[in-house]
Design a binder for these strands. Structure first.
Lengths: 359, 359
DNA sequence: TCAGCGTACCGAATCGATTCGATGGCGAAC
DNA sequence: GTTCGCCATCGAATCGATTCGGTACGCTGA
């Protein structure tokens, strides 16, 4: 009814106490007698006051209880990526433990990113660290707000939550090598923002802006230095399918194994292989990375590296808490574990097209 | 270096102007001479001042530029649902148009939802309207903050963004009926929070707490009043698979068509049908709802109703803008369109197991 | 009886910016 | 030359809550 909403001073006046007393009734930071508490509560109810204005409280306290998370320019892309969503879920859980919630920010370059400037966040989490995100990072550091970076190198002073991408990719590559494969193709995540898919040179290896892509590629090249490399356009099944088609259509001998940098890509590749009338793993072995639930592969089980995606988010949440508490959290390196599946098998004998009968 | 960060007063003092003048230099709300602007900017740079503190600004303005979106208790569940993610993306786009961003809130009942109380949001968007969300709604309305509800009935005064669920489901049901089917099973979305899957009675129809489920069910029953109804436990492929298995294992004649309330469920059902050695659509026709990209169905194309999920989010964003501008936006009803696929076909003749040769 | 002490409450300062009416100066018009 | 009006700038009030040093009061112990 009233044009203006009641403030805590109104409540205090109605209850016959000082505003400071009414404040502690709500915050509970100082003991208050039961009688006073009740009077204040009654007055609040009477006036329709439901609690302190978060805006005023956050100004005074210097904390808003908000953690900004900067993801790609398009939320949908982040949402479509199962690893990101699981990570976000873990992050939400991590920051919720300290009573904070997540503010979704897109690093939209068109709008001059005023969001990053004007978002009342206590800290920020950057996911990935593309060139675009580096600008975001500058903006945030300029504000003097804590930042944590997940899966990306942000320079000194910014705690990182990283995965053992290189080692993990080497682990699965060695598994493939141990099965006798030596003619393999690597399919990477995008090498740069919005770059089209296609074969890339390995000698010399071009600069790769995306950390994850680079590290996993290096891990695979550690084992298969001569492998051909195809960069996919994104971590989606259809992109993997396209990559698979391109690889099978390429001149020269067909690879006996294809190592993808994500499960989604692997799923697409498997389908492309099957659609070409070939069998996985008898004709071609395929590996993934991430260990997420993918619907397109069944009844096969993808051989992959399972990364602790939720743990990644939770760790970021913890790091944020620590920074807000004034500590400087150490970098964190999470490890992936090998999960054998039935999409890898012994390398076929040259000329043979079925499973190796001697195996 | 300095313990305390510079404020706009510091900048103003350094530039030799009043704080109010420095303020307008940053906000641009009042013309300022170029000379003054430059002096202020120089002083700001000198002091490392990167712009007004969002907390203070939002207190004074009464706006924080934040729209809270309340989704399920578990972000992951919302993220796994393709319709929700697309809707969120549309919503993000809608609110970004007015310079706001999204604050993710879980309606966690365990923590007494202090987030809803203390989140500095200008408005809220509720997604779905389960019993749990009704409490959230009460909390928010108590704060006197605008609310918009997507896909749920929230009572008078709360603008709704709805889908023509009943009509749309009737449309696709009529399509199935026109193909000669009369023994159909309906598979619904969950009928209540955390309710286990299973057959439900239709005479009398039990109270269904979830609006979407109820409305779509009514639409199907409008066409097939005698259909059996199986409530799934969630809109996921594995839940659909389980539902499919349960339906095929049920005593009595096998239905010739199964109408699912979501594409995910439909995809699971299709796989269950195929795993049982049957063919879609020759033995069993299957329909979905939502029109999202599902990976598990290829090479088939699902017959479904395509709902404008992104548009739903965008409409919610627009409604929020209007409410913030003081208007009371009208409810909005979005319509789905029928998309024929090849998962529906003529009803098989009793006893025949292949496609109807006379068709 | 009075010093000593703990509890509950009060007042005032403060967080950092924005807004708006007031003011001063300067050019144009009569 | 004086007045009018406009534009840039200033000052003070304000947004709503929190915090902290201080005070009053009641109780215990010598």
């Amino acid at each position: 009814m009233n044009a203006r909403r009641a403030t805590i001073s109104d409540v205090a006046r109605a209850a016959g106490v000082a505003a400071s007393t009414a404040s502690v009734v709500f915050s509970g930071k100082t003991p208050v007698s039961d009688a006073t508490r009740e009077r204040v509560m009654a007055a609040a109810k009477e006036l329709g006051y439901t609690g302190p204005d978060p805006r005023a409280a956050s100004l005074r306290r210097g904390r808003s209880g908000i953690v900004g998370v900067v993801i790609g320019d398009r939320l949908r892309a982040a949402f479509r990526d199962p690893v990101t969503t699981v990570m976000l879920d873990g992050l939400a859980e991590g920051v919720a433990a300290q009573g904070a919630s997540l503010l979704l920010l897109r690093d939209d370059d068109t709008s001059e990113e005023p969001q990053l400037q004007s978002a009342p966040a206590d800290a920020f989490v950057l996911v990935g660290c593309s060139t675009r995100l580096r600008e975001a990072l500058e903006t945030i550091r300029g504000r003097g707000v804590p930042v944590v970076v997940v899966e990306g190198d942000a320079g000194e002073g910014v705690p990182q939550i990283r995965l053992d991408n290189r080692d993990a990719q080497a682990v699965i590559a060695r598994h493939v090598a141990s099965l006798g494969h030596d003619d393999v193709v690597l399919v990477t995540l995008p090498v740069a923002e919005g770059r089209a898919a296609g074969w890339i040179e390995t000698a010399p290896l071009p600069a790769i802006a995306v950390d994850v892509t680079r590290d996993r590629l290096h891990g695979a090249l550690d084992v298969f230095p001569d492998a051909r490399v195809y960069a996919s356009g994104g971590s989606f099944i259809d992109q993997g399918y396209a990559a698979g088609q391109a690889i099978l259509a390429a001149p020269g001998p067909r690879p006996t194994a294809i190592l993808a940098q994500s499960d989604m890509i692997a799923a697409g590749i498997i389908r492309a292989v099957q659609d070409a009338g070939l069998h996985v793993p008898d004709d071609v072995s395929v590996t993934g990375f991430d260990g997420v639930q993918i619907d397109g592969v069944a009844p096969l089980t993808l051989t992959t590296m399972v990364q602790p995606a939720a743990e990644k988010g939770r760790a970021a949440g913890v790091a944020v808490s620590q920074m807000l508490a004034g500590d400087e959290p150490a970098d964190m390196l999470l490890t992936s574990v090998f999960r054998p599946g039935d999409t890898t098998g012994p390398a076929p004998r040259p000329g043979a097209s079925g499973p190796d009968p001697s195996a």
